[in-house]
Design a protein around this nucleic acid. Structure first.
Length: 803
RNA sequence: GCGGGCGUGGCGGAAUUGGCAGACGCGCUAGACUUAGGAUCUAGUGUCAACGACGUGGGGGUUCAAGUCCCUUCGCCCGCACCA
């Protein structure tokens, strides 16, 4: 036996796979297609994280198994390469982001290749490649054409020190993530995408896809659908105030009203309000606060009562005061609420603070102590024609009443907001529109795509918060495609989420220059059969890409409503100390070191053996050794192999059972128990000390998806034909998975007293007969009378006796 | 506060979904081979007052039978955060 020289072996097979192109997917094939997808990485300067291979190995195992089962498999890889870290690195080190990106990609690619993934590298894509982002821009133009992209003045996070717009994720604890300075709100004109238009379909179509439940739940919560009513309140000023409520049944309990500080009626009523200065001061204070601060001071309710205008409750004509308070948001509902302190916790707190009346309209709680918000058990009181009804019935009746009087109607609201699509940054896709003095905002013609990022030396953020592109005159100044007159280009770029919202479509036809992917390719490959990724992308990437896909479906570009048929999620790999891996904690494990010290096969085995795939798990250097020992033992088996075309008698049952277990566990992503089963098989082989070629062949083939290099090498050594990677996944015979005889426990009164051997499938009479002949059981039975006899076929016998 | 999840040996984790708790691996103990062992092999390894009893965060319940179902309670992790 040669030494197990994993470095030489792994390099050898990686080269062979590349030369032979056996992992290339065919766009036309007699075989059924299978499209496996993992989230493509952001090629950061740190290189690959040990977390990346967890997901990649899992779907590599599934892809490799599918190939062995006769599928034409597409398992692609690419680079989500636009983004801030690269840009910041470029600024700091005076290297162009394009070069930084190219370097990072080269490193990532080398690392991924060293792990032996069966990616189809011929379909590699890169979101920063103009031939790729041409189509990202094209999709934007289509969204614009259909009215789903629009510009809006809105408040953004502004770092006073960096003089730069920050994404919400970059604001930590109310201050700038990078410099720690104060972050304020600043109103800027931003591109928005109308994802809200798709809110209902994004909920409904979850029924059609196979996503793990927590992903569905998280998406639904994020979209946040609620059913209620929109109601018009008259005011003493004569203006209508429109409110949204999920509890129209409590209308009789509305004792005051609250509008958001930004509400336009305040400006309209300025003359009528005697305390307008106080109100304006309150508004200014609220505007100055970041979202974070507004949420932070949630405990203490603040506000100002409007002096001079009151609202009129439509159900009883009572005049009620109007307050302005920052707990009402302009961005949700109508920016105004009716306050029912008896039945809403926030209103209750506010009413207590400002000493406002609290009227109970749903009986069942104790409103002296707290708001009663239960909708299930309460009965309506103090509510005229609603009194006596259940909450549910009252809702129906009041909505009918509102409709009849033409002052309100049933209304559905969503928490989901439109997607802020502008970034004032250099390293992103330029938004392909120009602004003409005559024609206004004009999209550039499709024939001019891609609109390339200009190559420049300086891309530092500007003092004004405009995109770095704004400083580049040669880029900004252009002519209007409409009238030919002078025009200025949009200088904002797209967010990183843009390129990743449709990348899976491009893999099906990555070099197409006519369309984003051909109809044939999309028909054959989409939807993605199996998509695995992180939970952290559930509400951003996953939702955004579903939205884009639905839009592309609507305009006839893609053939399916949903992009991904199945979505699974992996847990995080933590540092050895159980904390999240990070440089500052000093617990980062470099995958290169692991591959170097133990080999790619061991690394892959360990990442799959580490624990439940869906849960997070701490890294353990000691446990890696266990996987390496397993690999070494597999290597050692070549010495004891003897000829034999069928499974050896001593092992055949274990082999059938292991094939079954491994195959099923892969489908359920229970990789840890699949590996445990193969370890158990090896323990068995060691025990019987014999192995023939057929046994070994089956073991190698089922182990191949996990540890592809060593299995290819042994496959060749043993003289088996072709690539192990393409050899059939072994099949099992259900009948051979069963034993002729089984040992089952016998309990007396639920306590284990003995074990007996019964024929497989024995009936109750047989099993009990054997049990009663057992010495220990016979002794127990002699001490009492039998009350009940239970036999679970092939599982256990339990005899209940009375002493 | 709301939503989701978790709690099993010294550690990572198994348990056919109500049927022998602790598979598999790590670690540990003893032995073998060794100049050597952080290599390899063999045996052992939940706890205890040990032919038995106890044991899946705590308490209660349903059942012939509970890690698994129900009630209650404690603790931890993740996401969202005044969404009317």
């Amino acid at each position: 036996m040669k030494n197990y020289d994993y470095k030489q072996i792994e390099k050898k097979w990686q080269d062979k796979w590349e030369e032979s192109g056996i992992f290339h997917a065919e766009n036309k094939s007699e075989k059924p297609g299978f499209y496996a997808l993992v989230e493509f990485p952001y090629p950061s300067g740190q290189g690959l994280h040990v977390g990346h291979p967890r997901s990649y190995t899992a779907l590599d195992i599934i892809s490799r198994k599918r190939r062995k089962q006769g599928y034409n498999v597409l398992y692609p890889m690419g680079w989500d390469a636009f983004g801030l870290p690269t840009e910041n690195f470029a600024i700091k080190n005076h290297i162009h982001p394009e070069i930084v990106t190219a370097n990072n990609i080269a490193r990532f690619k080398e690392q991924l290749k060293s792990l032996g993934f069966s990616f189809d590298w011929s379909r590699e894509i890169n979101t920063t490649d103009p031939e790729y982002y041409k189509w990202t821009q094209w999709i934007f133009l289509k969204l614009l054409e259909k009215g789903l992209a629009y510009k809006k003045e809105m408040a953004v996070n502004w770092c006073t020190s960096c003089k730069c717009v920050l994404a919400n994720e970059e604001v930590v604890g109310g201050v700038c993530e990078r410099c720690g300075s104060e972050v304020v709100r600043k109103v800027k004109s931003q591109w928005m995408l109308k994802i809200t238009e798709y809110a209902q379909r994004l909920i409904d179509d979850l029924d059609e896809v196979d996503y793990i439940e927590r992903v569905k739940i998280q998406q639904k919560n994020w979209i946040g659908r609620s059913t209620g009513a929109q109601v018009n309140f008259n005011s003493t000023a004569g203006d209508i105030i429109t409110i949204y409520t999920t509890r129209p049944d409590t209308l009789f309990g509305a004792t005051y009203m609250v509008i958001s500080p930004e509400h336009p009626l305040i400006d309209k009523w300025a003359d009528k309000l005697s305390n307008i200065d106080d109100i304006m001061a309150y508004r200014e204070e609220a505007c100055r606060k970041s979202d974070f601060e507004r949420a932070e001071v949630a405990k203490d309710k603040t506000g100002v009562c409007l002096k001079g205008v009151e609202a009129i409750n439509p159900v009883n004509g009572k005049q009620i005061p109007i307050f302005v308070s920052d707990y009402v948001l302009m961005s949700y509902g109508t920016g105004a609420i009716m306050a029912v302190p008896a039945h809403d916790t926030r209103d209750y707190e506010f009413a207590k603070t400002f000493n406002l009346p609290i009227i109970e309209v749903v009986a069942g709680g104790d409103i002296e102590k707290e708001a009663f918000t239960d909708c299930e058990t309460g009965v309506m009181v103090n509510s005229d024609f609603l009194t006596g009804l259940s909450v549910e019935d009252a809702k129906v009746k009041i909505i009918d009443w509102l409709k009849e009087k033409d002052i309100g109607f049933e209304k559905v609201n969503y928490k989901l907001r439109d997607w802020v699509f502008s970034r004032q940054r250099y390293w992103g896709e330029p938004i392909p529109v120009v602004f003409c003095e005559k024609c206004g905002c004009v999209p550039i013609p499709e024939s001019e795509l891609p609109l390339k990022l200009p190559m420049v030396d300086s891309y530092e953020p500007t003092d004004t918060g405009e995109s770095p592109l704004a400083k580049i005159d040669s880029f900004v100044n252009t002519t209007c495609p409409c009238c030919g007159g002078p025009a200025k280009r949009e200088t904002d770029t797209m967010p990183q989420w843009a390129g990743s919202s449709w990348y899976f479509l491009r893999y099906t036809d990555p070099n197409n220059s006519e369309v984003l992917a051909s109809k044939e390719a999309l028909d054959y490959w989409t939807p993605v059969n199996w998509y695995n990724g992180g939970m952290e992308h559930t509400t951003l990437h996953l939702l955004y890409s579903r939205f884009w896909h639905k839009f592309l479906y609507d305009i006839g570009v893609v053939p399916t409503k949903e992009p991904y048929a199945r979505r699974t999620s992996h847990g995080m790999i933590l540092g050895e100390n159980g904390e999240k891996m990070s440089k500052s904690r000093g617990n980062v494990v470099n995958p290169d070191d692991v591959v170097n010290d133990y080999g790619a096969d061991t690394m892959r085995m360990y990442e799959m053996f580490i624990g439940d795939f869906e849960k997070s798990a701490p890294w353990s250097t000691n446990s890696i050794k266990g996987c390496r020992r397993f690999i070494d033992r597999v290597w050692g088996l070549q010495d004891i192999v003897v000829d034999g075309d069928t499974y050896s008698k001593a092992l055949e049952k274990t082999i059938h059972r292991t094939i079954k277990k491994v195959g099923e566990d892969i489908e359920d992503m229970k990789f840890n128990t699949a590996i445990a089963a193969m370890m158990a098989l090896i323990n068995e082989i060691d025990k019987v000390k014999s192995l023939n070629k057929a046994d070994f062949k089956a073991l190698l083939s089922m182990l191949n998806p996990f540890a592809p290099h060593i299995t290819e090498e042994l496959w060749e050594t043993m003289g088996f034909e072709g690539f192990c990677s393409l050899a059939d996944f072994p099949t099992y015979d259900e009948a051979m998975c069963k034993d002729d005889e089984l040992e089952i426990p016998v309990q007396i009164n639920g306590k284990l007293r003995s074990r007996i051997v019964i024929p497989n499938g024995a009936d109750q009479a047989t099993a009990l007969d054997i049990a009663k002949k057992d010495e220990k059981i016979a002794y127990e039975l002699s001490n009492g009378t039998v009350v009940k006899e239970i036999y679970i076929p092939n599982k256990l016998v339990n005899i209940v006796i009375k002493k």
